[in-house]
Amino acid sequence: MSDSPGLLLGGTDQGPFLMTARMANRHGLIAGATGTGKTITLQNLAESFSRIGVPVFLADVKGDLSGLAAEGKSHPRIDARIKKLAVENFQFRATPTVFWDLMGKKGHNLRTTVSDMGPLLFTSLLDLNDTQGGILYACFKIADDNGMLLLDFKDLRAMLTWMADNARELKAEYGNISSSSIGAIQRKLLVLEEQGAEDFFNEPAVELDDLIKKDFSGNGLVNILDVSKLIHQSPKLYACFLIWLLAELFENLPEVGDADKPEFVLFFDEAHLIFDSAPDALIDKVEQVVRLIRSKGVGVFFISQSPMDIPEDILGQLGMKVQHALRAFTPKDKKI
């Protein structure tokens, strides 16, 4: 018999619907048309995970998740629902919450350094060709060889400019350094910089331990990242952050096997906004993570209006679906 705790999803007159916490690291999808309760399900799961000691990360697209930090209030409909589901020992209470913001306006600054991001992720994110990618790798190698840290965007762009000015002296050891290739890299970096990358690539850098924490009572910390403007105004920067976060989780968390509950759970609301304009590097990284990160105790949940919003290679890896009412107005919709 499993000792894995059960998480209440909802219920009917026949009884409650529970999700075993052990199943959470098999990932999931919460789907349904607008107004059918997807956000409530998300909040309910986030609170439930927190109460069994599992830290949570939420990407807040609509700005409506901050209420998790406040204690709820009684209402006749809520009271009736609690009675119908026969929830024992129910009480309203706040969830331990930390707010983050890549821009530092609605929460703590969430930052990393250029060196931590590394040339591989930058090459994928910027969609560099082999020649440009090779030059970026040389840039990081030169910095390492000379004991220099690439902390922010100014450091990276200054290093690339110095490489162009000293290409002849560097050629023997690091290969041909084309000024036109460096110019192409600089232009792509400029796009990221215009979207606010200088706020993300800076110090002090956030560690995974800052996100995967519990409070003094053993409740998992709920991390809420405000992306209400970021996802629309700075989509490349948002993709940059997600690639970094997923890479950090995949590379640094230890193997835990098939645990009774996950170590960390991520929720991505309005997931179609991620995948509609996502670079191939992000989709590849998400697919890699959902395929392989289960053994590290990480669960990933996507929330969207239709399962068709999620790429098929990723959708096929999701082990659980919570489906609210779907509206089938077209022949394509009816196939869901």
Results as ranks from 00 to 15, higher is better:
D3Y: 13
S4Q: 11
P5Q: 12
P5R: 14
L9G: 09
G10W: 04
G15T: 08
L18K: 11
M19Y: 03
M23N: 12
N25M: 13
R26Q: 15
L29T: 12
G32H: 10
T39V: 06
T41F: 08
T41H: 13
Q43I: 00
S48Y: 10
S50V: 10
I52M: 10
F57S: 10
D60H: 09
D60N: 13
G67R: 14
A70T: 13
A70S: 15
E71C: 06
G72D: 12
G72A: 11
A80P: 00
K84H: 12
V87G: 11
N89Y: 02
A94E: 12
T95W: 07
T95I: 15
P96G: 10
T97L: 13
W100E: 02
G104N: 02
L110D: 00
R111V: 01
T113N: 05
S115N: 11
D116V: 00
L125I: 03
N129A: 00
T131Q: 08
Q132T: 01
G134W: 00
I135R: 02
L136E: 04
K141H: 01
A143D: 02
A143C: 07
N146D: 05
K154W: 01
D155L: 04
D155I: 04
R157N: 02
R157G: 00
A158E: 05
L160K: 03
L160W: 04
W162F: 12
M163K: 04
A164G: 06
K171Q: 14
S179M: 02
S180H: 05
A184F: 06
Q186G: 08
Q186M: 13
F200D: 04
E203N: 04
E203I: 06
V206E: 02
E207V: 05
E207T: 13
E207Q: 15
I212L: 06
D215R: 10
D215S: 09
F216D: 13
G218Y: 10
L225G: 04
L225C: 10
S228F: 03
L230R: 03
L230E: 04
I231Y: 12
H232I: 04
H232M: 03
S234I: 03
K236T: 01
L242Q: 07
L246S: 08
A247I: 00
F250W: 08
F250T: 06
V265S: 11
L273M: 14
F275N: 11
S277M: 05
S277L: 07
L282I: 01
I283S: 11
I283D: 05
D284T: 08
K285G: 02
K285S: 09
K285H: 01
V286M: 14
Q288W: 07
Q288E: 15
V290L: 10
L292A: 13
S304H: 11
S304I: 01
Q305K: 06
P307N: 06
P307H: 05
P307W: 09
M308Y: 03
I310L: 14
E312W: 06
E312G: 09
D313N: 15
I314H: 09
Q317E: 15
Q317L: 08
M320Q: 14
M320N: 15
K321V: 15
H324T: 07
H324P: 12
L326P: 10
R327F: 03
P331L: 09
K332L: 12
